[in-house]
Amino acid sequence: MATSPVRTGTSPTTGQWRVVDIVVASVLAVAVGVVFFAWSAGYSGISVLTAGFPPLAGLYSGGWLIAGVLGGLIIRKPGAAIYCEMLAAAVSALIGTQWGLGVLLSGAIQGLGAELVFLLFLYRRWNLPVALLAGLAAGLALGISENILYNALWTIEFKLLYVLFAAASGVVIAGLLSWLAMRGLARTGALSSFAAGRTADV
């Protein structure tokens, strides 16, 4: 069978972003921001609980990290985790779940956490352990950076506890949930333009 490609394309391993990569990454980040907004309407009760003992807030901080891990898992291009996480942070500043420019810095740091794990595996492995590790790294990045930037006056034991909670939350919420979401999305056919949607066993 004679095949002649329409144009010289970019294979997913070259790392070049296609238009569909950029647009889907962007909309995904926005959608995760909207989902987080919707959830936050429901968990005002929880935030009252954690206010009693602030390090507990680390336990649901994984929610902030979904955009980066999920974006990385779906787009599979260098920089996807950082880009999605930063854009999601910008969205949360826009719709008022977070405030100030500092949120962009936090987004970059958290995205970097997940990104480093994907880089470690050279953007080739996208299985559950990698997703969990990415969630863990994002959680650690969040815990440590928040301690430096905002919780600096807490005593050390509470800082450690916060990092621990954030890391656990990163593994479960950002790592596991993102991986499940990626697999579910692949089965709906919504990812047919992506390698993530074509791999039979993800």
């Binding site: 569909v20 647009v23 995904l28 959608a31 989902v35 919504a190």
Partner: peptide, 14 residues
């Protein structure tokens, strides 16, 4: 919502 968002994004990209 994420399924709908990705579908919409794919069409928008086109």
């Amino acid at each position: 919502l994420i399924v709908q968002a990705i579908r919409r994004a794919t069409r928008l990209a086109t």
